[in-house]
Write a protein that binds this DNA or RNA. Structure first.
Lengths: 209, 209
DNA sequence: ACTCTAACTGAATGGCGGGTTAGTTATCAT
DNA sequence: ATGATAACTAACCCGCCATTCAGTTAGAGT
């Protein structure tokens, strides 16, 4: 497929382009940030001319929007799936959710994208709103319901579930920021999974009945 | 002082200018973000011509640097003071530290500045490095030592203090992000002090012996 | 009143990079 | 093999804004 001789002139592969462009954009946004990434950089990495990108995406923001939508959708689906089809006690479910998140933070570009969302949300509220509506305002209630279930079953104390969920996921946010902001400045590496393990342990004791 | 008739031409008040310029910059950076704030905006709000700013600050980045230095210094001094001159049990000290942080988050521009640091740290590592060196890498060890003291005295379990401290402050980071990123998009307001109260309560139970 | 200088201003300058335009070429249908 | 057309490119354009420069003026000292 890709091993036939490279011609001197361009190839036409309209079906493959959008995905290739997004992949290039994701790498570059993660490496250099959104603003510092030039459309020309994306084009070069995707093996295209700059103008060709505009055949597939309206403008630079549309690239980011597509990336956020893609990643938000994928992650939330999994997390929601874990939580919804589970029937046993709440404690191991919380563990599982947090360890899943920790794994995602370590192994995907999610932290970089999150940082970009934070950075760009004022200038481009659509991005922030999309993330908020598709991830935050869907994810938090799902986790809340787990806490509520634990309270109802007597596993947990009668805490405010909305606050509890934020206490629960906050260290994952901190880990994402640590990784994308402070590690590049020379801070010691954070072992996200070990951190999550200790955190979820303390968190569960903290809300145990 | 300010109620004498406004003259048509400019005033010369070289001693007052730097502070006025910084105040204007802080307001605008918090309102519109660093990149979106034009030097002309700062100048107008400070009641000066754009060029005059350059008599007092080398460039736009120097404004941000001065703001970060100022706020970082002030806050850390207080927090460190609380922790260092305290002798009693660790539990109420943790409470006091977190409630102090919560109060600062609610009543100052700290969250906005934090968001700017996160956003700009890749393009301008000096800013991120300054914050990391002056706040993070000084603040965390101080809090760690409180945890360590609690472990030594038998108040707390034998947790990893470095992780514990991060679990402890993470909700304050989340609160800052919530306030600066999601509330402007229409998210419900987060009652930071109530959140901190429940969090510190759970956190302490979570690491209690 | 006159001078001198530091404080201040209005008006350029420069370069950067997103987006566009006017063509060029690959590929398919006939 | 020959248009027709979609895919693609090179070169351009243009607005934006940080920074600078060449003056102008406030106001202290005499």
């Amino acid at each position: 497929m890709t091993d036939r001789p490279v011609t001197k002139t361009h190839q036409r592969r309209p079906e493959a382009r959008p995905a290739e462009i997004l992949a290039a954009a994701l790498e570059l946004f993660a490496e250099k940030g959104f603003t510092a990434t030039r459309m020309q950089d994306v084009a070069s990495r995707a093996g295209l001319s700059k103008a060709a990108i505009y055949l597939y995406y309206k403008d630079k923001m549309a690239l980011l929007q597509a990336l956020v939508q893609e990643m938000a959708g994928a992650n939330l689906t999994v997390a929601a799936g874990i939580a919804e089809h589970y029937q046993g006690p709440a404690r191991p479910l919380l563990r599982q959710i947090l360890m899943f998140m920790a794994g995602q933070l370590r192994s995907t570009r999610f932290p970089d994208l999150l940082k970009i969302i934070i950075s760009e949300s004022r200038a481009h509220p659509e991005i922030g709103r999309m993330y908020f509506e598709n991830v935050i305002s869907k994810g938090l209630p799902i986790f809340e319901s787990v806490i509520r279930r634990g309270i109802a079953s007597g596993e947990f104390r009668n805490v405010d579930p909305a606050f509890a969920v934020k206490s629960m996921v906050a260290p994952m946010l901190l880990a994402a920021i640590w990784k994308t902001v402070f590690e590049p400045l020379g801070a010691e590496q954070l072992d996200i999974e070990a951190f999550a393990t200790q955190h979820v342990d303390g968190f569960i004791r903290g809300i145990a009945a």
